[in-house]
Design a protein around this nucleic acid. Sequence first.
RNA 1: CGGGGUGUAGUUCAGUCCGGCAGAAUGCCUGCUUUGGGAGCAGGAGGUCGUAGGUUCAAAUCCUGCCACCCCGACCA
Length: 492
Amino acid sequence: MAEKITSREVDYSQWYNDLVLQSGLAEYSPVRGSMVIKPYGWAIWEEMKSILDKRFKETGHVNASFPLLIPKGFLEQEEGHAEGFAKECAVVTHYRLRTDPDKKGKLMVDPESRLEEELIIRPTSETIIWNCYKNWIRSYRDLPILINQWANVMRWEMRTRLFLRTSEFHWQEGHTAHATKEEAIAETEQMLHIYAEFMEQYMAIPVWRGIKTASERFAGAEETYCVEGLMQDGKALQMGTSHFLGQNFAKAFDVTFLNRENKEEYAWATSWGVSTRMMGALIMAHSDDNGLVIPPRLAPLHVVIIPIYRNDEQLDQIRAKVDPLMTELKQLGIICKFDDSDQNKPGWKYAEYELKGVPVRLAMGMRDLENGTVEVARRDTREKMVWEMTGLSDRIRQLLDEIQQQIFRNALAFREDNTHTVNTWDEFREIINSKGGFILAHWDGTAETEEQIKEATKATIRCIPLDAEEEDGVCVFSGKPSKRRVVFAKAY
RNA sequence: CGGGGUGUAGUUCAGUCCGGCAGAAUGCCUGCUUUGGGAGCAGGAGGUCGUAGGUUCAAAUCCUGCCACCCCGACCA
């Protein structure tokens, strides 16, 4: 457990891996690209889920569950969708194993169990859901359908990274059907804003809200909206997407309804999702060389209390002070733990809880008992203070709020320091190659230019910001006229 | 799928070049002493050396094949 985390300066990727493994968020599994999410990691994900789930329900959505296995033919129905996902699908071809007659104790795929129609493991669920919607939608009175599902999906990735890109990942996918285009677009935008608010207010990560260019658009979408965050190494991370699917899936699955004028019309669709990738963002946005830094609003444990004592009698004295404090803290909705285990010394515990990113640590020893005080340490700044026991629980609640805000302010300041408005190609290349971060630059709107910039610098257009102001300018690459700036960055 | 790296105790690794009893640290178990920033001492348990084959009196070590994982690219949320 005393292993060192690689410093961010030395090797950012290795730092990230060390952190995930050592803090007990997750570990590798025997199958490449899949991971075990351990209780501490899952606890954070559950926190994220419960907050988002509540917001979804507040905005009229309901949860359901659709199957893991999808008939291969379904994927063929929508052309763009098929092209986008075909090359990363795991395929089920057989339904049975048998003992291998040639190798004792070994199993083999039973060649006689080949499936008539092969099944794919869902990479996303548009197809199987729209196959259902076909039967569920008859009239405009059946609309809108506002369904979400929490599920795991699988995309066979060439190169995987814990949380950021695993073959199997957990997410939620909302799939809605609407009677009008306007309503579907409003839904797409609404969900994007719910994501953005969650990321800023809970994850403490400022995000760009924007629209993807055609080349970055979801397979099968008319328009893809996204939220983009900035990691400490200057690379951008797409943290969520919301798609306006137009009538593409309705046409592919023949989903029509009779409108008020008794005329048959195709339904309008959206889909939107965030995944366990957000865990990666949370880690990379705030943590340091000592371990995780988790914003209080997502932390599974807010406060840890560590006793410092020489014998059982002293421990009992400390416990007598800690018990009522814990009761008060719990009444304020603060999750706390008294770590009175005798396995490790206080110093070990300090390091351990810092590694796990617990926002506030209290230490109480004989000196404190005499003075009626407690040592308060905050994880984000690693600052230590000595506070009076009187009125402590309220001060801790305020401190947690302050930490939440401070972490966000830091992330925002970091993003501002690493967002550059650029007008020349030389400047663009210079910044992308040295500092990284976001670049705001004019773009002529063509896929050719976008591609050439990507080839030259590896930077991609992360989004066209929703709140971009109209501004006449010329494309940083081609010199052609442009109406607004777009956001470039190297991305995960 | 290309380039690089690694597979030896729960973990991190040494040992491999030059074949000869399977090692260290850490963690784990027992006991005692400790406890305000990753404790100390004593004792103990723990490994078919990734896998299959070959060479040899003898293989962790040499040869061949295979597999897995990590890092860097191409692809992607």
